[in-house]
Amino acid sequence: MTRRLLRAGAALGLTAAFLGATAAPAAADPQLMGRCTTTSGVVLAVDFSHWGGPIYRSCGTTPTTGYELLNQGGWSTTGTGHDGPAFICRIGYSGHQNGKQYPTAAQDACVLTPPASAYWSYWHADPGAKDWSYSQLGAMLYKPKPGSVDLWIFGATNAEGTEGRPRVTADQLRAHNTRPQGDAGKPDSTDKASPLPPDVDTGPAPEQPTTKPPKTTSPEPKPKKTKSSVSPSPATSPSKTSSAVAAPRSTPSVVDAAPAADAKHDTGSITPVVIGAALVALIGGAAVFVARRRRRAE
């Protein structure tokens, strides 16, 4: 019943959409981690260490946006009530804690814009870049370059960019293989992403790397397993720019996140809505009754 209603609503919305638009939206392709190379695909890394989890990384095709990367292959986000879905307030991965999104509702209600002391900050590392750069665009506007790394970390940052920098280096997360590996049946991840909905402004196009491709690192073979825990050597200094105070905790482990099915979405039950509407009608009816009675008494 519920589902039918929802579906009807969706159909209505889609029909209306088709009046003004022609193409339905679709997301870009999630890929196995081995399909990302130094020059193609984008590595998405999300740091759950704030809640005792690992850093997950997965691979997506280009062209894409930071938002699309975070909403495919089992990843999902929640925006805020105030800013809409474009402000990434919660991130979840269906392979981690059954797709539970962090921070939880008890930690942040995601109604207003989260404070600068506890939010998901967005960092990029272009191909060959040693250092992280704080994203100057929102997730829906930024288009990652092929071969780059997108990192989301949770915590506090300051305006100068000296606090709250990632504790992992870009080299610990980026793809090091020059050729796509694993699942050889598939073509290279250069295929175009499905078209976006009409009139969607995804911001300025990313600059194409004008410099020559970054020098290829030694093609060390990566493990074929899709979900292998690559423990980075903790001896490597986190980052030369990270402030000295940020070091005490050890860097979390990095886990490759395979494309997974989306966490099942429960549309909920219509019963509470019916009960709520009945309550409102009851109290409203009482108000009308009292108003009539007072008018008669006058």
């Binding site: 919305g13 959409a17 003004g20 939206p25 679709a26 925006g79 009409p198 009139d199 402004d201």
Partner: peptide, 30 residues
């Protein structure tokens, strides 16, 4: 404030393009 690929479209407003340096704000659109 942006539309995601999972949203239900209702209608589309005329879109006014903004220059690159003003990319944070979008006017119109789906």
């Amino acid at each position: 404030t942006g539309i995601t690929s999972r949203d239900h479209f209702l209608f589309s407003l005329p879109h006014i393009p903004t220059p690159d340096w003003y990319a944070g704000i979008k006017i119109g659109g789906p």
